[in-house]
Amino acid sequence: MPARLSRWISVTALALCACASLTPLQTAQKLIGQPESAVRETFGAPTETYQLADGTHRWIYSRQPLGHEVYAADFDGQGKLTHYRQMLTEKEIYEARPGVWTKHDVAERFGMPREPTQYYPLMKREAWSYRMYVAGYQQAHFNALFDDNGVLDRTMIVVDPLGGNDRDARK
């Protein structure tokens, strides 16, 4: 009996490792150049869709509010997948253009927020918040603040005081 249990544990562990290593990004890389139907079959229906100014379009796959990812599937004019990437990264966030981007521009890039929006009357700013990871493991929130005209005023990444580095808990 212990030998069977040991084999079962080994096979189960191997299967779990295989599942964990196959991420949406790796799966999507195999779909580059494929039609929208292949992406929909693989990832399901998008949470949002956007027609972009250059004639291409984007599907957003949001895992918010409890998840930490927002994926974007970009398609060319013929409906073929050209890019698939995680949008809640510091690189993507730093491309935001305060004073230029509007709520629509932020939604095209990161999707609509799935957490309740906040309004700060003294600052006269509306805040959209997205959960994310910084440095690969530190839980944080990306915040986009808009003025009363709906123009992006600033962005910030705030470390989540309730999440974070579980190594500190082991001390």
Rank of each mutant, 00 (worst) to 15 (best):
T23F: 00
P24W: 12
P24D: 00
T27F: 08
T27V: 09
A28E: 04
G33F: 10
Q34A: 06
E36K: 07
S37K: 03
S37I: 04
F43H: 05
P46L: 01
E48T: 09
T49K: 14
Y50S: 08
G55Y: 01
H57R: 11
W59V: 03
R63N: 01
G67V: 09
E69T: 13
E69A: 15
Y71K: 03
Y71S: 07
A72V: 07
A72M: 03
A73V: 06
G77Y: 11
Q78D: 14
L81N: 00
H83L: 02
H83W: 05
M87T: 15
T89S: 13
E90Y: 07
K91D: 09
E92Y: 06
Y94W: 07
A96S: 14
A96G: 05
V100E: 04
K103V: 10
A107D: 10
E108F: 06
M112T: 13
M112N: 09
R114S: 10
P116F: 00
P116D: 02
P116W: 04
P116Q: 01
Y119A: 07
Y120T: 15
P121K: 15
L122E: 10
M123K: 12
A127W: 12
S129F: 06
Y133F: 08
Q138Y: 05
Q139K: 06
Q139A: 08
H141L: 14
H141W: 05
F142Y: 11
A144T: 04
A144G: 11
D148T: 14
N149R: 14
G150E: 11
D153I: 11
M156P: 00
D160I: 04
